[in-house]
Write a protein that binds this DNA or RNA. Structure first.
Lengths: 198, 198
DNA sequence: CTCCTTAACTAGACAGTGTAAAGTTAAATG
DNA sequence: CATTTAACTTTACACTGTCTAGTTAAGGAG
């Protein structure tokens, strides 16, 4: 079960963790291949043996972030009441909590894919796909008990996702109640009443 | 009224336009101080006389983008019906049209402010503030006829803004109907019914 | 044990980036 | 015309990602 490599214990994992640290500490511009390598105690060219270029490392980091993201949402869900609305709101609060706690991670997760995306290692790409889909499934499951918004089968989940994501981007990290909108309503107040399926 | 400078006609403006071109053509990574300078036919250090560093040029570009953004929204509004919901929907469609036509501009506009933001030229910062606030005011005005969502005075505008922004980021540029959500509902279907003020 | 292959890493170089300093040119001012 | 000053160029520096060529160590075959 041991994955001892030659010199470093587990460089791949160390690079991902270093990247997340750098993001959390210094924002999105602080994430650098060379700094990841340095933090892992390794030369600047070493990462090339585990990741095809910076985009691949970033993709692996983002995949890991989606796991943390899902965990946060699930933790909030498990601490909430059992009514459908309480569950849905809890997940949204988890969504917002993650943005507030890990703003740079959130930023890199939802940034439009850069250019070289087509040549990241296929397994990394697959993991990324899995983790991001999994995160969305949490929200989808919580939306399922409600009647479809606008008569569209995916209407509710799309509406909730857009709403919480927009709120997260525009307002979640705004200095307390200092936005172009003036005093900010809490998220629970702008989530519309959603009738249950009959 | 002529602003002839020594060598270049109007370098400041040329740099902003070059930046917008670069963004539109090559995405957010294509925006570079040196490339802006080259496209304006000037050495790479010339921009320093008009903008305090790259962040300042970016701020000026973003301010200009907000102007284009407002124009797009207003154009849609003027081509729409006069009912409050038609007006509001038209503005949202303008919002989404801008994202689809100028994805990189949209991206740089709503990116979290980078580090050196505190030392951009104060007039640029003020222009940015003005233009972005002005854009939001368009949405606010269109939200005014509706009863406050969640009983909160700013509830409606915050809800609409979050909804359209989230939809724009997550879905507007998705390959047609290929998203984790499955077949995508149009925006008009996920905008809730909003009762008018009485 | 020795030889060999191969994976993991290092060292160095390169083009491109933003920024800062010093030098040059041209317009404006007295 | 002489001087000042703004606009721009040149040069240099540190930092980035990537590529190439070495080096080191682990594991297997005889």
């Amino acid at each position: 079960m041991r994955k001892d490599t030659h010199h470093h214990g587990d460089l791949r994992e160390a690079l991902i963790l270093a990247g997340i640290e750098l993001l959390d500490e210094g924002g999105i511009d602080a994430l650098t291949l060379r700094k990841c390598a340095a933090r892992a105690g390794v030369s600047h060219a070493a990462p090339a043996h585990h990741f095809k270029g910076l985009v691949s490392l970033k993709a692996a980091i983002v995949a890991r972030c989606y796991r943390m993201f899902s965990s946060t949402m699930l933790a909030h869900k498990n601490n909430a009441g059992t009514t459908p609305r309480a569950q849905l709101l809890a997940i949204c609060e988890g969504y917002l909590a993650f943005t507030r706690t890990h703003a740079p991670l959130f930023q890199i997760m939802f940034q439009p894919k850069p250019e070289g995306m087509e040549r990241v290692n296929p397994d990394i790409l697959e993991e990324l796909e899995t983790e991001s889909t999994n995160a969305f499934m949490i929200l989808r499951a919580a939306s399922a008990p409600f009647a479809p918004v606008g008569g569209h089968e995916q209407g509710t989940e799309v509406m909730v996702w857009a709403l919480v994501h927009g709120y997260a981007v525009l307002f979640a990290n705004a200095p307390d109640e200092e936005t172009p909108a003036g005093v900010l309503p809490e998220f629970a107040r702008i989530l519309p009443d959603l009738p249950l399926r009959k």
